Amino acid sequence: MDAGLLAQYVAVALAVLLSAAYVAKRQFPNAVRRLRIALAAPLVREGRPRWLVGLGRAIAPPARAGADGCGGCSACEPTPPRR
């Protein structure tokens, strides 16, 4: 196989992978969040090496805002005025 052809295959595979990740994040945000939690949880357990814990924290989704004391329905916040 030619090196140029191999580079094209790698570039196309990378483009397809990035496109699929973008669509999954835009269309299925809750599923992507659950997947990130499922991947990160085993990595941040007690006794894991520091680099593995760092990787798990990088994979983990950010904490949801407003879910500290209640269910996070955002009903306490005032609604913005309509335009």
Rank of each mutant, 00 (worst) to 15 (best):
Q8N: 02
R82C: 04
G69H: 10
R82K: 09
F28K: 06
M1G: 07
G54C: 05
G71Q: 08
L35K: 03
R33L: 00
Y9D: 04
A65F: 13
R82H: 10
L5A: 12
R45H: 12
P80K: 06
P61Q: 09
R57I: 01
P80H: 11
R45E: 14
G47C: 11
A67T: 11
Q8E: 05
G71L: 12
P62I: 05
G47M: 07
L14K: 15
A60I: 00
G69D: 11
G71K: 04
A31T: 09
W51C: 05
P61K: 09
G4R: 03
Q27M: 08
R48A: 08
A58K: 09
D68L: 10
L39Q: 13
G47Y: 02
L6P: 00
G56M: 01
T79L: 15
Q27T: 12
P62K: 13
V53T: 05
R83M: 08
L43S: 00
A24Y: 06
I37N: 03
R83I: 06
G66P: 02
R26S: 15
A13C: 10
R48S: 09
S74G: 14
L17F: 03
V16G: 03
C73R: 14
R26M: 11
R57W: 07
M1K: 06
R26Y: 04
C76K: 13
E46H: 11
A75S: 15
Y9Q: 06
D2A: 05
P81A: 13
S19A: 12
A58V: 13
